[in-house]
Write a protein that binds this DNA or RNA. Structure first.
Lengths: 142, 142
DNA sequence: TATTAATATAAACTTATTATTAAATCAAAC
DNA sequence: GTTTGATTTAATAATAAGTTTATATTAATA
């Protein structure tokens, strides 16, 4: 575990968030897995460790983390918000077959487009869609 | 009008869509305005010309146009789908103040990222968020 | 321990989208 | 021009899914 509960507790304290058991566990999960779960997926996953975890706690916790800039919200599809711990600029690829989201490195220091001169840019997003290697492989084996 | 009703009628016929009055008007609107409306905004706008236009017609029409690859769906926020006639690759900027969406040119021929080698890419999207020039100007005048 | 904040539970809400069905429109044949 | 059949539209209701709220309970801090 790169991110120990101790370190994450400290991180929560720094942000003025009381380090409850649930918050530490949820943050630990996101910090130590390169995943991009929806709120629903976080709930499903964390129920294994925290059987009493509730939907409202997950939503409140994730929103609090985004507010505190500990997590990043990503929008690829119009019907789901995903969360990730990785705050560094990078692109996302979503597989149309399996739904998995992959990270990829890409140069975000694109020169500011002429059309946006005088604009204040707060957030840059790049996402691709298609079929991932693993799903392409499956298809061939049919 | 760059795109006459006649030309659009032909386009609809080519795609196998009966060129109804509503379809022509909606397509005409999108083809001649560089806008990125939601279904709701299309309804609101077109009601001026087509007072009896209904929600279901707008949704069906827009979906049919996307299906026929006459319009492109764009997802920036998780709670709204926007539509545009411009099928060429370009980026989008959404202003967090006024909600307006702007187009900008950007090089999409980025070399395929290493992490995506072996992946099939069907769709590339780039969107920025921030505050547009016009809203920045307003702020200064307060 | 007292105080304050966070969680669990269930229910309610919000809102984009779709289904349904009757009426209207259109194309084509008569 | 009229009839016929199929497609499209209008209007309403229903769906569906993610998200939020109310409240009682529990946990964390001072």
């Amino acid at each position: 575990m790169k991110n120990s509960a101790e370190r994450l507790t400290e991180e929560l304290n720094k942000k003025g968030l009381r380090p409850s058991h649930q918050r530490i566990k949820i943050l630990e999960y996101l910090a130590n897995h390169p995943c991009h779960p929806t709120a629903e997926q976080v709930l499903f996953e964390m129920k294994k460790e925290l059987p009493t975890l509730s939907k409202s706690t997950v939503y409140k916790t994730l929103n609090a983390f985004v507010e505190a800039e500990m997590l990043r919200e990503i929008t690829i599809e119009n019907n789901e918000v995903r969360y990730e711990y990785n705050l560094a600029d990078h692109g996302h690829f979503k597989c149309e077959k399996c739904g998995e989201v992959y990270d990829f490195e890409i140069d975000f220091d694109i020169s500011q487009p002429e059309e946006l001169s005088g604009f204040k840019i707060n957030d840059k997003n790049i996402y691709f869609k298609g079929v991932c290697k693993s799903c392409l492989k499956k298809k061939q084996n049919i």
